[in-house]
């Protein structure tokens, strides 16, 4: 058997073969081969096992399906938001279009990854019409109705979506621990979402100060409009704390909000105690602001859904 000819042939019809296969180190660990001598007798089993991993249908446990489908729902929410923004005339300035094209495309990639992981269990594409980015649950008359004609508002809603996404992936990660490859894929999406959030916040500072984005510091007296690229305290409730829906929930506590050092719980982003360690006394010079900034907080699935449901038609089952 010419193993490499086989792989090479498959590659011509399936360019993603290498994405489907485990990395080599994991292949050997998976088959208990680490440090052993591979013999000819072992090869057939190894090869069939590799292809079972690559193409075989395996049943994911329901917790993993739930986490990934919530993530996929959020990715659709974000994808259509950025896609609609790029299609709106005179919304995104030319200098910022490359960034939003990158972000939209990253979300599209995440959708692809999540669909592949979920297989037949993936929710169908809800389509653009399912979403009501005004925050009006389908009425189209929510507080963010002008988002596609007002760049500052558009950016504020974008920040709220992406920060919700970052908190959701963080909250879901522990439920993926039984499948290390899916866990790693989710972590590799999570950090990209955090990079998006950082950039959107940077852009917002520039818009708020009417200056080049990379010259404007965060304004601790107006975190709503001019945030840091990281979350400081609860960012004073985020871009739109006084509307209904409010963005305060994006930076507020989840359920449960308290717990012991090794419990899983979801405090507000202003939290300054981690694993039972009081960060304020543990580091000289730490402040409530810096200690909260140093750690992003997670959210539970139910709280994430409550936030996101404001942005879908009430007749949809998305985020229910």
């Amino acid at each position: 058997m010419d193993f490499f000819k086989l792989i090479s042939d498959i590659e011509r019809v399936d360019p993603e073969i290498y994405d489907r296969l485990d990395s080599r180190r994991r292949v050997f660990r998976h088959f208990g081969l680490a440090g052993k001598t591979l013999t000819a007798a072992m090869l057939p089993n190894l090869v069939s096992g590799v292809f079972q991993r690559a193409y075989g249908q395996t049943t994911l446990n329901p917790d993993i399906v739930a986490v990934l489908n919530l993530a996929l729902s959020l990715e659709y929410l974000e994808y259509y938001y950025y896609d609609s923004g790029l299609k709106a005339t005179n919304l995104i300035p030319a200098a910022d279009r490359p960034a939003f094209e990158i972000i939209r495309n990253d979300e599209s990639g995440h959708i692809k990854v999540l669909r592949e992981a979920l297989g037949a269990a993936a929710i169908p594409d809800p389509g653009r019409a399912t979403f009501d980015y005004s925050g009006g649950k389908g009425s189209g008359t929510g507080p963010f109705a002008a988002a596609f004609g007002n760049y500052a508002l558009y950016l504020g809603v974008a920040q709220s979506f992406v920060d919700t996404g970052v908190r959701a992936y963080k909250g879901g990660a522990t439920k993926l621990m039984s499948n290390k490859d899916i866990l790693e894929a989710a972590l590799n999406i999570h950090s990209v979402e955090a990079r998006h959030s950082s950039h959107v916040r940077t852009v917002r500072r520039g818009v708020a100060a009417n200056a080049a984005a990379i010259t404007v510091p965060g304004n601790l007296a107006d975190l709503n409009k001019q945030p840091k690229s990281w979350i400081s305290g609860t960012d004073n409730g985020g871009p739109s704390p006084s509307t209904t829906p409010s963005t305060a929930a994006v930076y507020g506590p989840g359920v449960p909000a308290t717990g012991g050092p090794t419990d899983l719980f979801f405090p507000a982003d202003s939290n300054t105690t981690q694993a039972g360690v009081d960060l304020l006394t543990n580091t000289a010079g730490a402040t409530a602001a810096s200690a909260s900034e140093a750690f992003d907080e997670a959210l539970d699935a139910a709280t994430v859904k409550t936030i996101a449901r404001n942005f879908v038609d009430a007749k949809s089952t998305l985020f229910v």
Partner: peptide, 15 residues
């Protein structure tokens, strides 16, 4: 969970 809380801050820094 703790590692997740830190890595997203590192990603914000990096970006």
């Amino acid at each position: 969970l703790i590692a997740g809380k830190i890595v997203s801050v590192e990603a914000r820094h990096a970006a």
